[in-house]
Simulated assay, not measured.
Amino acid sequence: MDEELAMICFGIISNSGSAKSCYIEAIQKAKEGDFTGAETLMTEGENCFHEAHTVHLDLITNEASGDGVLASLLLIHAEDQMANAEMAKVFAEEIISLYKKLA
């Protein structure tokens, strides 16, 4: 794996992890009744996830144009982290919605 691809993978992992952390913190804010804080963290998470997704989309676009990327454990881990962040978002939205109904 070349250094450029490794850095791309680390960027995906970092941004996905940040997004996931924001979503989990948003749940905690909603649990405390701070729905404005929860919304702010969800937006911050969205921004981080968007960064990860944009870089990942560039890899897919390059592959579609014939400039393929060899699969590696690091790339697979990066994609797994993106998927986990996306699921964390879905769960956070549902849990926050439930906390709002209880408030």
Rank of each mutant, 00 (worst) to 15 (best):
L5Q: 13
L5A: 10
I8Y: 09
I8W: 03
I12D: 07
I12R: 07
I13G: 03
I13H: 01
I13T: 00
S14T: 12
G17Y: 07
G17R: 10
G17K: 08
A19C: 08
A19K: 04
K20W: 07
C22P: 05
Y23H: 03
I24F: 12
I24R: 12
E25I: 10
A26E: 02
K29Q: 09
A30L: 00
A30T: 04
K31I: 05
E32T: 13
E32L: 15
F35A: 05
T36G: 12
T36W: 01
G37Q: 06
E39Q: 15
T40N: 14
L41K: 10
M42S: 05
E44Y: 03
E44I: 07
E46F: 14
F49S: 11
F49P: 06
F49W: 06
H50D: 11
E51T: 14
E51A: 13
A52E: 07
V55D: 14
H56K: 06
L57Q: 12
L59M: 13
L59Q: 02
I60N: 03
T61L: 09
N62L: 13
A64K: 08
S65R: 14
G66H: 00
G66V: 10
G66I: 06
D67K: 14
G68W: 04
V69M: 12
L70H: 11
A71Y: 11
L73G: 01
L73S: 09
L73V: 12
L75W: 05
L75F: 09
A78I: 03
E79C: 02
Q81T: 06
M82I: 09
A83F: 01
N84S: 13
N84K: 09
N84D: 09
A85F: 00
E86H: 03
M87V: 15
A88H: 09
